[in-house]
Write a protein that binds this DNA or RNA. Structure first.
Lengths: 158, 158
DNA sequence: CGAAACCGTTGAAAATGTCAACGATTAGGG
DNA sequence: CCCTAATCGTTGACATTTTCAACGGTTTCG
């Protein structure tokens, strides 16, 4: 039903047992890195039918916030080069999911807002991302999932 | 003292406040992805003086386990294409940190083992990785850090 | 024995990340 | 009020990373 790479599927399913106890596998840095890429690979699979990747989903999601971002703000928050944001917004604009609107406060800036179609697609995308998340976190209890999310959020806040 | 990119430094230090409450910023998938890349960027900075990146460190670390890996096992565990492992091992071998040894059980395979110099460098690298980890996790308490590590490890085990 | 699978390697193509420069616009100091 | 410096989005070039197909040598297994 959902088109996920077999390789990714295997990884989520059944970790290679050989080095689970290696020193490397106990470092938070390593684990974060691994699950970061695993998370995006898995999510990309779930978003494939919508012709989106996590990057596009992220932009679309932020654009749909109450106060939509400028491209510079997207660049900062998503840690992408401004030129990458250009390409990203070009793609989304080509798919009629977002528009570039002038910033009334600064004529250099452009505010990225969703189109009606963008809002519809976002709903479907959110469902897919949720499914991917459930998949990845499936061997944690609900409480543990919440705990993990809490720790990550605390890590993100200063 | 430690050469970390200013951009990375800023990111660790002082998160952009603008979207910390956005829906996107509350999804575990997004946070994992973000901290995964942040972790490796930060660690790469700390490893720069040793002319290593996390990828090289990972190989060197696994090679120093009791039962050293073949290239195929490295490829599986690190989720890298076999051709990437070739380049990685080439580099480490060129720096006299690891050797390719024949696998007595299978002449197709090559076992990656550390040189004496590799073992020395690994010690320094581990110290740097530890420092990077402390840096990234600094706004969690010791208990929370252990908790996070535990959750990630549980996530990794099946 | 023979076909199929697997290992490491090479090389090419695609995706992603990084960087410098530009016109238009804004901000700030003298 | 100017004039310089900084910022925004954009373009284009370049480096790094990822992905894929093909290959010789080896092992597996019917």
């Amino acid at each position: 039903m959902v088109a996920v790479d077999q390789a990714v599927e295997d990884l989520v399913q059944h970790q290679n047992e050989r080095f689970v106890d290696a020193r490397l596998a106990q470092e938070s840095m390593f684990l974060m890195n691994r699950f970061g890429s695993l998370a995006s690979a898995l999510t990309n699979g779930y978003l494939r039918d919508l012709d989106l990747k996590v990057r596009h989903y992220s932009v679309l999601s932020l654009a749909s916030e109450e106060q939509p971002p400028t491209q510079r703000e997207l660049s900062d928050f998503l840690v992408l080069d401004p030129s990458q944001v250009v390409a990203l917004v070009d793609h989304l604009e080509g798919a009629d999911l977002v528009r570039r609107e002038p910033d009334p406060r600064d004529r250099r800036s452009k505010i990225i807002v969703p189109t009606d179609r963008g809002r519809e697609v976002l709903l479907q995308a959110e469902a897919q991302v949720g499914a991917a998340s459930d998949r990845l976190l499936s061997n944690l209890t609900e409480a543990e999932q919440a705990e993990l999310q809490g720790l990550l959020r605390k890590l993100a806040s200063r």
